[in-house]
Amino acid sequence: MSTLHQIALTFIKSIGPITAKNLLAYCGSAENVFSASKKQLLQIPGVGNKTVDAILSTNALSRAAQELAFVEKHGIDVLFFSDEQYPRRLKNCYDAPILLYFKGQADLNQKRIISIVGTRNATDYGKNLCRQLCEVLAPYHVLIVSGLAYGIDVTTHKECIANNIATVGVLGHGLDRLYPQVHKSVSQKMVLNGGLLSEFPILTNPDRQNFPQRNRIIAGLADATIVVEASIKGGALITAEIANSYNKDVYAFPGRTNDVFSEGCNFLIKTNRAGLINNAQDLIYYLGWYDEVPENKKPVQVNLQLNLTANEQKVIDVLKNGQLSIDEIAISMNIPQSKLAIVILTLEMQGLIISLPGKVYKLV
């Protein structure tokens, strides 16, 4: 495979990710796209004269040579759509870019990846939520993705660095520059453990229209997108909407009804576009990570000094032998399910037991 031709394919005007994938599917490789005749290209469904003329008259190969020289000089990885290293989660998104530029150490196919987004005008409330999320998620070997913008984005990256979590910033420009420049020191630390990712070539300015476009990568890379703080208008809600269109999980922290920087989160929750989470434990539960105790994290032991009722203590005792269904607990305790349901709900609210699929319960 020719990296030069793969890069060149992204420089052809009027060819976006969907058309590019169509060309690759019929031609077999980027080299074959450039060597195909006009007649051969016109036989491809969805490819018309305008696209063919753009391919045949392009100077993309010379521009690609400049790009290739830059990435080789600066140790930047070129991830093509067909490469094994290309993010698999993103590849499943219909409009995923055919090529990415990546500088860093992170595994973009790591087992656990989440995106955290939010307002550029982060409050102390939002910053504290970012800190708490990162502190709790650190033992789970998670990769956290954001956009390296002001506010929630850069706060997330900084907290990841503080907790030794791999973090990737998705940029709205080429890797020959950084916007905002004030985050340069943060980005340099990110490259050591996480990285910087972009679909844009060098000489691409951080223009306004690039950022909604890059948001689809933030959403597509992850298993779930978490909105920490967001106004009713802005990039965070765009990212959440894109994640929903990809059938990805979206979660949001609720805020006060009169707080402008929580309006977006409250709207997502109210319209069932996001699940409500109050803390990192909620996220771990929803993502199904609760059964895997991370390294260096001891299981929480039930505090026997809690002021439990007799039936609550019986449920705790029964579950010490392992997870059980509500039917099995009811039989063991010789108690009606209607009465047991209230006891179980109380224990769940106290954080002593958790519910698994199929009305099965276990101790935390």
Rank of each mutant, 00 (worst) to 15 (best):
I12H: 00
S14E: 02
G16F: 06
K21W: 01
L24K: 09
A30S: 11
E31F: 05
F34T: 10
K38T: 12
K38I: 14
Q40L: 08
L41D: 04
I44R: 02
P45R: 04
D53I: 15
D53G: 08
L56T: 05
S62M: 10
R63A: 03
A65H: 06
Q66M: 14
Q66C: 12
Q66N: 12
L68A: 05
L68S: 07
A69T: 13
I76R: 01
L79I: 04
F80G: 07
E84N: 12
L90P: 04
D95S: 13
D95H: 04
P97F: 04
K103H: 06
G104R: 05
G104N: 03
G104C: 08
Q105K: 14
I114E: 06
I116Q: 07
N121R: 05
Q132G: 07
C134M: 07
Y140K: 07
I144G: 07
V145I: 15
V145Q: 01
L148H: 03
A149W: 00
Y150D: 14
V154A: 09
T155F: 01
K158Y: 08
A162W: 00
A166K: 04
V168E: 04
G169Y: 09
G169T: 09
V170D: 04
V170P: 01
G172I: 11
D176N: 02
D176H: 04
P180L: 13
P180C: 13
V182L: 06
S187Q: 11
L196W: 02
L197M: 04
I202Q: 03
L203K: 14
N205C: 14
R214M: 08
I218H: 00
G220Y: 11
A224L: 15
V227S: 05
E229F: 01
A236N: 03
I242M: 10
N247Q: 13
V250Y: 03
V250Q: 03
A252M: 05
A252P: 01
P254H: 11
G255Q: 10
D259M: 03
F261M: 15
E263G: 08
G264K: 01
G264C: 00
K270W: 01
R273F: 15
Q281A: 11
Y285K: 08
G288S: 06
P294H: 09
E295M: 06
K298S: 08
V302L: 08
N303V: 04
A310R: 12
A310Q: 11
A310T: 14
I316Y: 05
I316H: 03
V318R: 13
Q323H: 12
L324P: 00
S325P: 07
I326Q: 13
I331T: 09
I335Y: 04
K339T: 12
L340F: 09
V343L: 07
L352M: 07
I353D: 06
P357A: 09
K359H: 12
